[in-house]
Design a binder for these strands. Sequence first.
DNA 1: CCTATGATGATCT
DNA 2: GATCATCATAGGT
Length: 213
Amino acid sequence: MIAGTERTPLTRNFFDRPVLEVAPDLLGRTLVRRTDQGILELRLTEVEAYDGPNDPGSHAFRGRTPRNDVMFGPPGHAYVYFTYGMWHCLNLVCGPEGRAAGVLLRAGEIRVGAELARKRRLSARHDKELAKGPARLATALDVGRSLNGTDACAGPDAPLSVLTGTPVLPDLVRSGPRTGVGGDGAPHPWRFWISDDPTVSPYRAHQPRKRRT
DNA sequence: CCTATGATGATCT
DNA sequence: GATCATCATAGGT
């Protein structure tokens, strides 16, 4: 790596690769979130890959809709969706454009701005839980639908970016089935995390919901 | 530590 | 009407 580039945002060509290459390459890197309140930085420890219309687990599996439109656009943009009536989740679109692949950012360690994150995550009993799970990560970083479509490669002042930093050593990357994904998408070992990291979320298998009256 | 369950609403069929 | 890339809480071990 060229000296002095560690805090340079990743550029679009980083994301314009197959999602299964990009996802593990994000582990250990720093996600930067700039808000009116201040700056937060998070070291990514857990991600999941979703491979567009080829992937039964992907929101894009049944084609382009208003919700998943951003996934079909250029790589390096944020895809933020609202789920379970309460939560947001943050993804980064991967290439090539039109494939609708993306990486769900599932967990990380807050390294800068923990005081801001604690205010948004009042139920967290330890700092390790501030961003332990995709909706917790989005809440801690104040990521909502207003950031859907944001370009995360827009430069050092963008509301979202990922620094080049140094990815975690490949020996420390683990992979396994994706959390909460069932059906034909379940077997893919497309969840990636850093071995033994205390901020990684617990695995939960897909549970078919019971009928409600 | 663990498992079970309710909350809450956008999205798609 | 069913599903959902989830979380907080309650209560058992």
